[in-house]
Design a protein around this nucleic acid. Structure first.
Lengths: 228, 228
DNA sequence: CTTTTGTATTCTGTATGCAGCATTTTTTTG
DNA sequence: CAAAAAAATGCTGCATACAGAATACAAAAG
């Protein structure tokens, strides 16, 4: 658990001259990661005393971070019994993907209209890097770049609310996708879809991009279906 | 400020035998209402000491509630300077409405497919009541029933994630709509659109309902455009 | 008169302490 | 020996206390 050291380094100021992130933000990120990466599996009670000690923080800021995550939907507050990591059913996941699909289709259309060439180029760069990771068989980095690309497209829409909602859903789903290890052939298919996506985006082909994004998420459901 | 009494009544147990809501939930609701109803205008700093005293609560649970609202997007956290009520630009509002539109179109389609007859009947009941309030010129109750109807349709979709995202956006927009007092002719048009909505829902006409909901929100933007 | 610097105050951020509820273990009773 | 009651433990929820940062104010210098 290197959470402790990294947390304390930030509190002391560390190498950087100015403390960038407040403790609250740091705590939220750490807890999020712990949930997503499975350190805190669904159903786990978030023990304030224990967890606080582990992170080197007192209960007060920890509780505040937990409340934040509760509003984000990663954690559930049970009166008088603290917080537990939320458990998502198969239907929950499918529902989230349905909404995400709708949002990405919208984002795709808007991005084609309003994105700057520079913005599109950045996504292309992410994509190329992702393909390299794919070819190298680096699952973790592939996964992260994949997420980044979808996030980037949501942001290219220029619609902050859209990017926001997209981020919330994506965060909730991260844990699921993090687990879902599809086989080589499905993985290849996913990469191919991404290839189409980028091409459509660069051509600013609204209909095409929207369609590919939608299809990509329909397939995504098929890919994770068994894992949940 | 009757927040004090109502909060304290709950803490003592009040008339009900069991304390239903935890203090956290109560606080969140109260702060939400205060923001929506304009007691705390955009840009206002949430003064913990003062606000806590006003509500009869110590700073700790208040801070937790504020963090919750921050994650909800109603409030912005400024490091070392506390929380500020978020200010939405005209573009922000338009963006939120765009997303809301997309979500409602989806909700409409799903509702037509999966809603129970009983569920639809409930929405009809809300609608009829709303029309009565409209005829009586009761703006506040009309407004609240209007919101309830849209919320209900989102829930009829049977998609929890969708209902969730919808609720978040609706909450963020409540304040804007609460202000926007459209004239009589626009009001009448809005009611007519609602009439169409209910009819389409009862007929389970996906395409029609989706179309009306979308149009309704396009018009909604035209209605509030000047207020922001 | 403006600007700057030092000081005082106010507010946030975090830690700690205490009361009450939930749960578990122990004791008592049938 | 089983079941119920009672005590004990552990944890959450809230309040208070303290340290540090930011701001406001005041005095002094240009």
């Amino acid at each position: 658990m290197n959470e402790i050291t990294s947390l304390e380094r930030r509190r002391e100021g560390g190498p950087g001259p100015i403390r960038r992130t407040a403790l609250h933000d740091t705590l939220v990120s750490h807890l999020r990661d712990m949930i997503i990466e499975g350190d805190l599996p669904p159903g786990t009670r978030l023990h304030e005393g224990q967890l606080g000690e582990q992170l080197g923080v007192s209960r007060t800021p920890l509780r505040e971070a937990i409340k934040y995550l509760a509003s984000e939907g990663l954690v559930e507050l049970v009166p008088s019994r603290g917080a537990v990591v939320k458990r998502f059913s198969a239907k929950d996941v499918q529902d989230m993907l349905t909404v995400l699909q709708s949002l990405e289709e919208l984002a795709g259309r808007l991005a084609c209209e309003t994105a700057s060439d520079a913005g599109i180029a950045e996504v292309r760069a992410l994509h190329d890097e992702m393909v390299r990771r794919y070819q190298a068989g680096d699952r973790l980095q592939y996964y992260k770049l994949n997420q980044q690309i979808h996030t980037a497209i949501a942001q290219l829409s220029g619609n902050a609310a859209l990017a926001d909602m997209h981020a919330v859903l994506q965060t909730r789903l991260k844990r699921i996708r993090f687990i879902g290890h599809e086989g080589p052939e499905k993985w290849a298919a996913a990469v191919a879809e991404h290839e189409e996506m980028i091409a459509a985006l660069e051509a600013r082909d609204k209909a095409k991009l929207s369609e590919v994004l939608g299809r990509h998420l329909t397939k995504a459901w098929e890919r994770v279906r068994d894992s949940v």
